[in-house]
Design a binder for these strands. Structure first.
Lengths: 300, 300
DNA sequence: CCCGGGCTTAAGCTGTACTGCATGCTCGAC
DNA sequence: GTCGAGCATGCAGTACAGCTTAAGCCCGGG
């Protein structure tokens, strides 16, 4: 493989028509350029220039090398330019992940704002459970993940990652509408003590964190929940609750997926999902920009 | 424009998966590689690698640069390879020039032999008068020229060029077939003294060297020729001679273009066109190969 | 808790490659 | 013919880029 440095000086020489002119362009002395070309001719064991009284002309081999040098030079210039585009957010990509209910409720408006500000950045979003995200981030398969962790609760292993608090998602319990007076209301009015639900049958969200959370919460209250059903779909959970199969935990973000014949109550002690944005500690420009957007939404 | 050297080490690092492995491949210490990458990150003001416990992974910018580096590396390899092809005559071109009669008689078999030996070399041939060729060669517009110079005569200005003798082309005088006994013979048998032609009308080859040569020759013999006609076409010259318009100088190489009703005689003093191959002093491989072919033909 | 693999940093050295200058060459002008 | 301008080149000296060495740090695993 030829020395690219020398190839580029050959290119400058041929374009300028003389070593002296090329040297002036490159900020060198003619002697330096001459030595570079001589070195390249040694490398290729081929004369590349024919020396004239008033400059030089390329041989066939020289002209061939200049063509390649043009491509190389263009690539080097484009490479620098594209990296600049990346940092200026005139290009690039942002790979997002989020859990389902945030993807549906929280992200769309943020994504819209981001796209208006940086239309050239390609966005992608995949649905991921919070506990999958840290490894995906660490492996470089993801740029930003919207996750949650239950409070109280163990939280995620975010070693080596940066977590940005976004909001708290309060968890309710969904009850079948036994009292006709409550039908049609989605606003959680009264609180209900967890221990009250000691004997209830539970319909459980199938997400791995939610599964554990239910068991942990009940253990704290001193009992083991009776799991009647696992489902990963809130409309279905809603149907099961309405049919009287059991009760279910439903965070605020998923409330809109509940049917009309379900009653929601706050829990006591209060259970919250802490929603965070997870990133690598040195975020890419696009990632940082999205964090800005998310933080600004939080304020409003 | 980025430093291509550093770009290529970045490529090696990403391909190897770690700086240490890349260093081993490149024959450097890990420290050297680390410094190169750090320099590139400074140049681009962008992190290019994310450091892990067991190696490194490229950031988006890093991956982008590696793509460009791949192209650069391929080009550098191809460039070296194609230059090697050129010197090994597996590629390249050979631009020939010759005067008309050599192009028709002397070159075809040489070109055939060359093509059999080096089929990958692209050949081109243009018709040029000898006095045009030195400048074309010096300007790099030509690789090899078949030329002639009259002996005795001034010869060409071949300063800075290399001339390879190929053959001597003896010049005859073409006379109208006044004697019916001579009709139908093309073999120049007897000689004729130039001074004998003092009063003849001349049909002159229009080629610049031939025009002068006729005048010079006659001046040496002590008279000025009476030019009746200039033509650049030997069949036409032949016709004019046959019609009795005048006499003409016809070298051996053009004899086959003469009609049947023309008589040819050697001149005294003998006039010869010295046929040479003209090249630059450091011929390209293809040019050298063609010189070999021409020299070997000369021997046979 | 220690160990090992890997990246980084600082310091020092080496070799590449640039400068400066003298030389040789060609061409054009006087 | 002589001289000067413009250009390429070679040599000696030098400076700096980039390498090595050595030490340190971080992280993950036994």
């Amino acid at each position: 493989m030829l020395d690219p440095r020398r190839l580029l000086t050959l290119r400058a020489v041929v374009r300028a028509g003389s070593m002296t002119a090329a040297a002036a362009e490159l900020g060198y002395t003619p002697s330096a350029v001459s030595q570079q070309v001589a070195a390249l001719e040694r490398e290729t064991a081929t004369p590349l220039l024919v020396r004239h009284a008033r400059g030089v002309l390329p041989t066939e081999a020289g002209a061939l090398l200049v063509e390649h040098a043009d491509v190389v030079a263009n690539r080097l210039a484009r490479a620098a330019e594209e990296v600049a585009d990346l940092t200026a957010l005139r290009a690039g990509r942002l790979r997002l992940a989020s859990f389902a209910s945030a993807g549906a409720r929280l992200l769309p408006s943020a994504i819209g704002a981001f796209r208006r500000r940086h239309p050239a950045v390609r966005l992608s979003l995949e649905l991921r459970e919070p506990d999958e995200c840290p490894d995906l981030l660490r492996d470089g398969d993801l740029d930003l993940a919207i996750t949650f962790g239950y409070v109280p609760g163990p939280g995620l292993d975010t070693e080596g990652l940066t977590a940005t608090f976004l909001s708290d998602d309060v968890v309710n319990v969904a009850l079948p509408a036994g009292d006709p007076a409550l039908e049609g209301t989605f606003t959680p009015t009264d609180e209900i003590d967890v221990s009250t639900l000691r004997d209830a049958a539970w319909i459980r969200d199938a997400g791995s964190l939610c599964r554990e959370q239910l068991v942990d919460m009940c253990a704290t209250a001193g009992f083991t929940p009776n799991i009647a059903f696992d489902s990963d779909d809130f409309p279905m959970v809603s149907g099961l609750v309405e049919s009287g199969v059991g009760v279910a935990l439903v965070p605020d973000l998923a409330v809109h997926q509940m049917g009309r014949r379900v009653v929601l109550r706050r829990l006591r002690p209060r259970v919250v999902r802490r929603i965070e944005a997870l990133t690598l500690p040195h975020p890419t420009p696009a990632t940082a920009a999205m964090l800005d957007v998310l933080r600004s939404r939080r304020a409003t």
